[in-house]
């Protein structure tokens, strides 16, 4: 696969430039899935571990790039943040007073609220 070579390494070997891999195990993947609020079965978890390791080991090649003195990118096209005037409902598309539209797609809308399973704080 020439492309893999172009990328500087063969990702299928799970190799990374620093010698070893920051590999994830089932417990880590389970923790990430929980953090991301995605329920995964044992079987799915087993399948995901090598997949994610393949990808993560491959992206770790970035570690070899010398980034000394380089700022992380903040704006891809030089541009500054515009600020909005403090006016209520200036544009109806971003204003309030549209409760019906806001609730129109809700799986459980009751008495003008969104309903969710009871939360105990």
């Amino acid at each position: 696969m020439p492309l893999a070579l172009f990328m500087g390494r063969d990702f299928r070997l799970g190799f990374n430039g620093k010698g070893c891999c920051m590999s994830v195990d089932t417990a880590t993947v389970a923790r990430i899935a929980s953090l991301a609020r995605i329920k995964v079965s044992e079987g799915e978890l087993e399948a995901m571990v090598p997949e994610l390791n393949g990808i993560l080991n491959w992206v770790e090649q970035l570690g070899e790039v010398n980034v000394e003195g380089v700022e992380p990118m903040t704006a891809v096209i030089p541009n500054t943040l515009r600020l909005r005037a403090d006016v209520v409902n200036a544009d109806p598309l971003t204003g309030g007073g549209i409760r019906d539209a806001v609730l129109a797609n809700a799986p459980a809308a009751e008495h003008g609220f969104f309903g969710v399973p009871k939360v105990i704080e």
């Binding site: 609220f113 309903g115 704080e121």
Partner: peptide, 14 residues
């Protein structure tokens, strides 16, 4: 979140 308006649901006001 309002917890006291329904026996099994909490209500969300945004």
């Amino acid at each position: 979140l309002m917890h006291d308006q329904h026996p099994t649901m909490s209500y969300v006001d945004l």
